[in-house]
Design a protein around this nucleic acid. Structure first.
Lengths: 216, 216
DNA sequence: AATGAACTCAAGCAACTGCTTGAGTACAAG
DNA sequence: CTTGTACTCAAGCAGTTGCTTGAGTTCATT
């Protein structure tokens, strides 16, 4: 019953082209944004012909949206996994560490992982068309963050906590896009965590008086 | 001795064209960035001919750099003025309010002021050529921030404080660029300050234990 | 009125954009 | 071997890009 694996070299080659185009598009999107991406540059980088884009994706825009959606999904999954793994009694520091975790890991890993983060960050500034399809996942990620955040930041109403979450996420996105990101990408995971997590935690907590752990 | 004012309508018209082009370029730069700006769109918006750009500025790139430099200078002056007006005994909240002041005022004012902020934020992601000329002013602004920040965040070394300053500035820039900026632009100055300043102050202070005002 | 500088304008150029086309290749199925 | 499908390729098209050009117009100076 040894089922012979269907090789079909043509389809394999097609898949390789598709993946190469998507990877090249992701990289270009990460470093130049949607406006700065050109068809020829993608195909040159992927070693493919310009017609391959139309053939496999329909258009340059569709290819970019596909790459963006892929990146967004990857990011949201990582973010949700990090928040879901938190215990309900997690400290603010732990919440902040989980919140910034995917970004920090991307800085350490570099390469494609970092390109994913940069692309996601760019999307946060210029939302593309296919955005709506991932709204549900996005909402869940926000609810997760609120759930673990609330007990750690008492006396601040929900609307304000949402705002702080968006501020913190925006800060991380900024770090990924700005030149400072290049510096962060050279740091060790420990250095990164030691510098970054307190700032995120502080942004969550605000400047309310009193020690952070002073709740009954 | 009534010195007759030199009208010279030709030079006046030229100056008006120059200003119009610079304003149009600023607006386009604010909403689309350097890659998304086209010659025709600027000249259409300014009611000028395409040749006017080459005549007055030499090239589209030169026009953009001129507009960017103008915006950067305006921003840095406002930031330095806000920090310089602080007393040496200012609280962390006051420091944060001064730090975020120019951005908040731009949100309230809208229009050209907000375009300046958005352009500055974009430059933070994609630094242009003429950047180096303003490095001195930038350094002074950073030193000002550190001076008033240090006494309010004891036990954190200078390098880390610089990092937090960059994080806070990045967060503000992000707010200016991302869709959330549109929401902030509809808020009152009081609302804005009540929501934003605590987050900035918190990012400065980090999650160190102990009440923020507990210094002798 | 004549001169010349400051400025504007329509037209057009080369380079680049995304995309299409028709021919050609590689390979599984019959 | 023949057929049909999946895929790649060079060439080229219409539209847009930044920029230049040479002929204007406007206006202070003389």
């Amino acid at each position: 019953m040894t089922r012979v694996e269907k090789t079909d070299l043509r389809r394999e080659a097609g898949q390789r082209t598709r993946d190469g185009l998507q990877a090249a598009a992701l990289e270009l999107l990460a470093q130049r944004g949607q406006e700065g991406v050109t068809l020829r540059e993608i195909t040159d980088r992927a070693g493919a012909n310009v017609a391959a884009v139309s053939y496999h994706f329909g258009s340059l825009k569709a290819l970019c949206e596909s790459a963006i959606e892929h990146a967004l999904e990857q990011y949201l999954d990582a973010q949700m996994a990090a928040l879901d793994s938190l215990s309900p009694t997690a400290t603010l520091h732990e919440v902040a560490a989980a919140f910034a975790g995917p970004m920090m890991r991307a800085f350490v890993a570099g390469g494609q992982d970092l390109a994913v983060m940069r692309t996601v960050a760019r999307v946060g500034i210029e939302p593309p068309q296919g955005w709506e399809r991932l709204t549900a996942k996005f909402d869940k990620s926000r609810r997760d963050a609120l759930r673990v955040l609330k007990p750690n930041v008492p006396g601040v109403d929900e609307e304000e906590l949402i705002f702080r979450t968006r501020c913190a996420a925006g800060m991380l996105n900024w770090l990924a896009l700005a030149p400072i990101g290049a510096e962060l990408a050279t740091m060790s995971a420990e250095q990164l965590e030691r510098q970054l997590v307190p700032v995120v935690a502080g942004a969550f907590r605000g400047d309310a008086a009193g020690p952070p752990a002073a709740r009954p």
